[in-house]
């Protein structure tokens, strides 16, 4: 396989899998206005849950489903901290992130679980389709992404989904219209963390191990991907475009990272690249306006 297509394959796979994380983070940060930093720990929670079930002989697809459910549950707890105990959203997420680290270690019984000798979802899917290597990874990731895309594209247009979408913007109106806004937060946080855990479960199975530190910095990656996606799609508002923007943004972000690594930059530089990408994605629309001498609203601090 030549270099270019291998780079595209890697970024394509990562765009699909981490696109799920980006959608999860989009739901909390943008839809709910609930900056949930807990996903740094729900990602390995998903990996750990799936890994433990798999090494104990469970069906790997079932194990992945359990990982998704573990994420749903973690999200509910984050939401409860905020809605029932009135702990700020930011702190609720941080507390979950810190607390779940220990939980993940307990689940795994150590810092790392190898899955190399176990049968994962990818192995079963390979036997079923005859695919191997990158095409295999991309197909399974793509199938999962497609299912989630279709499901969310439907759910966010339902009566419940629509109430969810007004949440970050106007809870006062929602309560006035009879929507239980606390329940909204629980649904949204749950869904978000479920998606992140699902991605963690698949990543662990694909790379052949689960590591307790595999989620570190994932929130920053997801935010960078969202911002790039929004930049590319020009601040989308419709549900379909938003979901697409999450995948495309993640793909673009991973493409840059993969390219940077191929160009021989040390992995230590990746953090700086991420920051620069976000600055560029956020800054370009404004710089373009400035060049055209358009009016720019005052800087906001939110």
């Amino acid at each position: 396989m030549d270099v270019i297509s291998s780079i595209l394959f890697v970024a394509g796979y990562e765009g699909l899998i981490f696109g799920l994380v980006a959608i999860g983070v989009y739901i909390t940060f943008r839809v709910l206005g609930f900056p949930d930093l807990g996903v740094d720990a729900t990602f390995p929670l998903g990996g750990a849950t799936a890994a433990v079930f798999i090494v104990n002989g469970a069906n790997p697809f079932l194990a992945t489903l359990f990982a998704f459910m573990a994420g749903l549950l973690a999200g509910i707890i984050t939401g409860l901290l905020n809605t029932k105990l009135r702990i700020s959203a930011l702190l609720s997420g941080i507390l979950m992130m810190v607390g779940l680290y220990s939980v993940n270690l307990r689940i795994m019984g150590g810092a790392n679980i190898p899955l190399i000798r176990s049968i994962t979802s990818f192995d079963i899917f390979a036997a079923f389709t005859g695919l191997t290597g990158m095409p295999l990874s991309i197909t399974l990731a793509g199938l999962t992404a497609l299912i989630i895309f279709v499901a969310l594209n439907w759910f966010l247009r339902t009566e419940v989904g629509l109430a969810l979408r007004a949440s970050g913007d106007n809870e006062k109106m929602l309560r006035g219209l009879g929507v239980d806004t606390d329940k909204n937060i629980l649904i949204g946080c749950s869904l978000s963390n479920g998606l992140v855990a699902l991605a963690g479960a698949l990543v662990a199975q694909n790379q052949g191990f689960c590591d307790v530190g595999m989620g570190i910095g994932i929130i920053v990656m997801a935010l960078a991907a969202i911002i790039i996606g929004e930049g590319l799609f020009g601040n989308p508002k419709g549900i379909t475009t938003i979901l697409l923007a999450c995948f495309v943004g993640t793909f673009a972000y991973r493409l840059f990272i993969t390219l940077a690594l191929r160009l021989g930059l040390p992995p230590g530089d990746l953090k700086l690249i991420t920051s620069v990408l976000v600055v560029v994605a956020l800054g370009i629309p404004y710089l373009r306006k400035r060049l055209r001498r358009e009016w720019i609203p005052p800087a906001s601090r939110m």
Partner: peptide, 8 residues
């Protein structure tokens, strides 16, 4: 602004 949702 309170009676309507801007993004919808």
């Amino acid at each position: 602004e309170v009676g309507t949702s801007r993004n919808l």
